[in-house]
Design a protein around this nucleic acid. Structure first.
Lengths: 159, 159
DNA sequence: ATATTCCGTTCATGGTGTGTACAATATGCA
DNA sequence: TGCATATTGTACACACCATGAACGGAATAT
């Protein structure tokens, strides 16, 4: 006996590890549900929404740039942009400087929808945060940062 | 001035809220990557793996039961089981008590693969946990539990 | 001027998932 | 007992997400 309990050293039991997995799974599920919900509310596929949200800061985007940000291939971007243009949210503009590239920009309707989607996401996020007791919020943010870093490090040499 | 800073009351700034979203997004991405990785390692689609994992406790499963646990429709289960049987991991057995239902059970090969998948998932989980400094682990579990509850509560009246 | 690279698109392929319709079987009830 | 109804698994059509190969047109390097 050295007077140091596992809970003081940070040692985790098998049971705690299983709980960790379960909580992460459930969290993942909640995130998925949230995405499905928003997609359903606007009647726009999730992937197209993700694409739409990219037009936050920058005025113009290219297929190549979108592919890099969303981590998908260019041909997929073509499809997404097709969807967004048929919905009247995005317009294709030939790049005056390089006629290979087409510039993508939000239409007025697209800007409006983007704003609404963005707002709904923030509102849902705040709803979650509001459900956390205020005194626990700082610790939550700290732990989340820790976990994010740990998962990134653990996932680095995977692929 | 009342001498109480926002950080003491649990008030979160806009910046902190944005960081929260970003961390959650990144976490989500990591979980997705992990699933893709495991699926790739075994050459088995993710949905079939999820199905395979259900045979942990119970010897026999039915399409109806699998559908309920995975939260998908029965016709989808048929396809997943088709995949698993063509891979030789699951076998269909007519229920002697009710000839409408077919009982599903792991083949010896299926049991082996299930064990391996399960092991890899645990190993990846532990890798993450190992990447967290021991003294932070208890707080992490606590915060995760808090967050999970908050997200479930916030997501209840959605659908 | 020609070869190479770059960009966006098209097409084929595969995975995830829903909803409808259907055949076979089980069950409830007159 | 006999028939209406419910249940079970399946087949099929449809939609969404994503990749990779092939291609044409345009820019760039040599």
């Amino acid at each position: 006996m050295n007077g140091i309990s596992p809970s003081e050293t940070g040692m985790l039991s098998q049971k705690q590890r299983r709980q960790f997995s379960q909580m992460l799974d459930k969290l993942y599920q909640c995130c998925t549900d949230r995405q499905v919900y928003i997609s359903g509310q606007f009647g726009i596929p999730q992937a197209e929404l993700r694409c739409l949200l990219l037009f936050g800061q920058e005025r113009y985007l290219t297929a190549k740039g979108i592919a890099a940000r969303l981590n998908i291939v260019r041909s997929r971007v073509t499809m997404l942009v097709n969807g967004l243009t048929t919905r009247g949210l995005v317009s294709r503009i030939p790049d005056p400087a390089d006629s290979r590239v087409v510039l993508l920009a939000l239409t007025p309707a697209g800007q409006k929808v983007r704003q609404e989607v963005s707002g709904m996401m923030e509102s849902l996020r705040d709803k979650v945060l509001d459900a956390v007791e205020p005194e626990r919020r700082p610790a939550l943010l700290q732990s989340l940062e820790t976990l994010k870093t740990a998962m990134e490090r653990a996932g680095e040499n995977l692929e």
